[in-house]
């Protein structure tokens, strides 16, 4: 070890493609699993949450309108960028979750692979959950999945990185934009993820990451009239119920917390379909000619 003094990182929020401090000017101490100080994290406020929603809404049109192929390439690019910074995340995850280097490495590898999994889904999900409907009449009828809009995501409390990636990637793969509340106790891998997203061609605002007191940030998000859905993965039972009640005000789609023991397990499509709408478009057929099919 040299006696050179480390340059410490100032962890910041990631909102609208930028790295602002909390508008509140407040931070809170983040410690490792043993209680050792790691860094100060921004203590995001209601206003930060509001700004993040604005950014996410602004990004929604472009991101949902991008081709699925394009979204797939960008998600894959995130995996590429993470792979290059693997060591950093292994260290951060090890510190955050009190894991050995090897165990943390497994988590990070699985998280990178998860981006690859969802990168491949972007241009397939519509074929799996959408399709033509054989209606009894002279009509062409097609159902397609569409992103529901701005999704508030409460990242899992314990799995600070693999869990985080497992809830963000499916939301944005289908064209939603996200306001993510990082694990309250282990927010640093999440805040660092912003740095990778910012350099992966992901348009600013598609993912916005906030750190702070989950209950404090989540309440305005659950009640926000311009948020379309909420993933309660990181809420405990009492908070989840309270947020679900608040979410009813504009009938947000609510993904309730589910017992997930092992985020490394293969994902299905559930976390994507939870935030998809089905749009069905009808059009008459039968214009071949007045002397044709109809009589």
């Amino acid at each position: 070890m040299s006696d050179r003094l480390n340059v410490l990182k100032t962890y910041k929020l990631y909102v609208g493609g930028k790295f602002p401090r909390s508008e509140s000017g407040r931070v809170y101490e983040v410690t490792d699993a043993k209680g050792k100080w790691l860094a100060n994290a921004p203590l995001a406020s209601r206003k930060d949450a509001r700004d993040a929603v604005v950014a996410a809404r602004k990004a929604f049109g472009g991101w949902s309108g991008a081709t699925a192929y394009n979204r797939g390439q960008i998600l894959y690019r995130v995996a590429e960028m993470l792979e290059g910074r693997r060591d950093q995340y292994v260290r951060e995850v090890a510190e955050a979750e009190g894991l050995s280097k090897a165990k943390a490495g497994e988590q990070v590898d699985a998280a990178i692979d998860r981006w690859v999994w969802y990168a491949g889904w972007t241009d397939k999900i519509a074929q799996v959950v959408g399709g033509g409907n054989p209606v009894a009449g002279p009509f062409f009828n097609l159902s397609s999945p569409e992103p529901t809009g701005v999704v508030a995501v409460l990242a899992p409390r314990k799995s600070s990185f693999l869990g985080l990636v497992s809830v963000i990637a499916p939301v944005i793969a289908t064209g939603n934009t996200a306001v993510v509340v990082a694990s309250e106790t282990s927010p640093l891998p999440a805040l660092s993820l912003g740095e990778v997203l910012a350099t992966s061609d992901l348009p600013g605002g598609v993912v916005n990451i906030l750190s702070g007191r989950t209950a404090e940030i989540a309440a305005p998000l659950a009640a926000h009239q311009d948020v379309n859905a909420i993933d309660l993965a990181g809420a405990d039972e009492a908070l989840a119920k309270e947020l679900e009640i608040a979410a009813a005000d504009n009938l947000k789609r609510v993904l309730r917390p589910q017992p997930v023991d092992n985020w490394a397990a293969t994902s299905g499509t559930d976390r994507m379909t939870a935030f998809l709408e089905t749009k069905t478009v009808w059009h008459p057929t039968g214009s071949l000619g007045a002397s044709g099919s109809a009589y």
Binding site: A136, T148, W282
Partner: peptide, 23 residues
């Protein structure tokens, strides 16, 4: 919107999913 009728309106069919966005 969950159901879009182009050049027709208020058509229903058991094979065709029906339901809304937002509120």
């Amino acid at each position: 919107a969950g159901v879009i009728w182009s050049n027709t309106f208020n058509k229903f069919d058991p094979t065709s999913p029906f339901g809304g966005y937002k509120e």
